[in-house]
Structure formats: C-alpha cells, structure tokens
Design a binder for these strands. Structure first.
Lengths: 194, 194
DNA sequence: ACCTGAACACCGTTCAAGT
DNA sequence: ACCTGAACACCGTTCAAGT
C-alpha cells in the first residue's frame, strides 16, 4: 500500500463517477459535494478546482449521461435487421437506458441547471436526435419509410419514445414497460412505413 | 392592522402556496422549508406539524399540481367541437400546462419522493389518464375513433403528449412547441381515426 | 392544538495556506 | 497546479417550552 499522493491525478473523473453512483443510487436530490469528496477520499473543498459549483458538476454529469445514452442507441441502430426491427431496437435501447438509470435521466433532462447550459451539454443533448434523423433518412432512401420531412418523423418518434421512457420511470404506465413500448412502436411504424 | 394571531389558522395552505411560488420561480432544487416559513412569516419549525418532512411537502405539492392539470385538461375535453378538435384541445392543454409550470411538472413527475408515495398522490396522478380513456371510449361509441382497446389508445396518446411536454420544458424540441404538438397530434389522429 | 426558538448535524462556497 | 482546512452563511429535523 503506497500512501495516496497529494495530487490525486484524476480527481475530476473520480468525482464524476462518484456523483454518478450517488445519483443512480439515491437520486439527484440527495447528492452532496461533500459526500462525493468523502467517497473519493479528498477534502470537501477539492472539487472547486474541477467544478465551479454543484450545478457545473450536474451539467458535466448530464453530458456524460448523454454520451452513454447515445452510445447505447447507436449500437442498437447499427445492429442488423429490417428497418422496422432497427427502429424497434433504437426505441428499446432508449427506454431501457431510462429505466436502468432513472436518476441520471432526470439530471440529463432537468434542463438548464443554471440557465446557462454549457455548449457541450447542448451539443450532447442534440446528438441523439441527429442520429435518429440520419437513420430515418436512410430508411427513406431504402424505401422503408414514407417520404416526409425526416426531422418531423424523427420528432414524432423521439417524443413517443421519450414519453414512454419518462412515464416508465415515474411508474405511470399501468402495464409492463416493454408492452407499452411495443404498442407505441407498432403504432409509430404503421404511421411511418412506406 | 391587527396583530398576526399566534395560531395562523391556515398555515398548511399558505406554506403549500409559498412552496408552489418558489418552485415555479426557481425550481425545486432551491426550495427550502426555512425559506417558505420566512415568506409565510412563521418560525422555521412551524411546518413540522403540517408536513412531516420536506418530501411530504413535495408530495402534497405534486397532488396539488395534478389537480390543476386535471382541471385544465377536463375543461379542454368538455369544450364543444369535433372529436378531433377536442383531442387536439386536450393535448394542447396538457402541453401548455407543462410549459407554463415546468418546475411544478418536474415535482409532479419526479416520482416517489420517498419511495412511499401517498395513496392520494397515486390517485391524483392516475386521474388524468382515466379521463383520457373515458374520452376515447366516447369517441369510439360515436364512431370517430377506430375500435381498439381504449386503454391502449390512451397510452399511445398520453405518451406522445407527455413526450412533447417534457421535451418542450427541456428545450429539446428544435421547433416551436405548438408546431411540434401539431405534428404529433396530426400523426396521432391519422392513426386512431375510424 | 399550534407555534417558537435553541440545538444538532449537516450543507455549498470561499480562500489563505500548505505541498 | 492542486489540495487542505478553517470560516461563513445557510440547510432539515427535533424537541422542550410557551400560548
């Protein structure tokens, strides 16, 4: 056992990871900077050099969350299958992420943690939508989805999936999440299929 | 000016109103029991007799919010017009409430503020869905909406409207809220019309 | 029955001082 | 450049005591 060095070396990343653990375990409401500093084994003032304040840490956590979400969705979109199957996989990935990380999702969508959202946060939060538009355009080129503004179709699909995701985390679905998602995706596909 | 009596008389209601003001002005994150006690002109310990703790007050605030929301939606559903127009009015009422009260909506849907949600909260949060199911059943009887499980149609519509509402409050819509809602409701109606 | 005010154990943020 | 630890102004919650 060597002594912990005075300079942590990677404190920013560790604080972020501890914050993520805390949020996923007990929700954003009971997250404390002093608590994650304790968990990381540093003094309570140490976070100040890496995050200006608590809302800056929450913003960074949200960016992190959007990266994870985009990764999960991109993996689903890249899987083999028909366009209908891939669309179902995308929606499932989105909702699964939400149900497995409800606290993180709340942080991600609790919008403007200080009215001055980072450019990085805005970009991260929009990346998923752009990927969805690209997928829809590809499906249109292949003749699987009817010709209409890809942005409009993406918005409709995004709203539907996000609605199921947030209702699921709020426990307001009155049926199993996968059954609800199945209904919604089937309805969506009937409306958009070429 | 008579002196403020020792017994406030209606402190519970006043604390709730002050809390609602605070949440709508600055969000739930910066709401403090001591702050609303100051605003109400009572000592910081006074709330304990009316709300066991902060999460009990948030639950009560959520119940209040669901009543307001249900009222707005019910008024929209009762307005004259075709079934399509009434459905559009219902969705508009829902999204308008969300956009005008984003902080309150967040409290309402931040689910299980203590894992032991009040029966009252569960009931209030489900009332809106029940009203939607009733509206759809009526439209089916009138031959305006195709025959299918009314609960399933309600879920699809609820998820779509809730998705638009939450994306709007998170500023993730990339277009005016009413334009997005128009797209979604038009899509919905094409899928459910008889 | 309802409210006050002190007490306690926490917070976030700031900043001189240490390494 | 990075971290510590005291200081400050806040919190939520509890509970004897007052009316």
């Amino acid at each position: 056992m060597t002594d912990r060095p005075y300079h942590h070396g990677n404190l920013r990343a560790e604080l972020l990871q501890r914050a993520r653990d805390a949020v996923e375990l007990e929700g954003a409401a009971s997250l404390s900077l002093r608590g994650i500093a304790r968990a990381a084994g540093v003094s309570h003032g140490a976070s100040a050099r890496h995050f200006a304040d608590k809302s800056a840490l929450l913003d960074a956590l949200a960016v992190d969350g959007f990266f994870s979400l985009d990764e999960a969705v991109a993996a689903a979109a890249a899987a083999p299958g028909s366009y209908e199957e891939r669309m179902r996989a995308i929606a499932t990935a989105y909702v699964t992420f939400a149900v497995e990380h409800p606290g993180l999702l709340a942080v991600m969508y609790s919008a403007k943690h200080a009215a001055d959202a980072t450019a990085e946060l805005v970009e991260a939060s929009h990346a998923g939508k752009a990927a969805l538009v690209a997928f829809i355009a590809e499906a249109q080129d292949a003749g699987a989805i009817r010709d209409a503004d890809a942005d409009e179709i993406a918005l409709i699909a995004f709203a539907a999936a996000h609605g199921v995701a947030t209702l699921a985390t709020a426990d307001l679905l009155d049926m199993p999440t996968d059954a609800a998602l199945d209904l919604v995706v089937t309805f969506l596909w009937q409306g958009v299929a070429a």
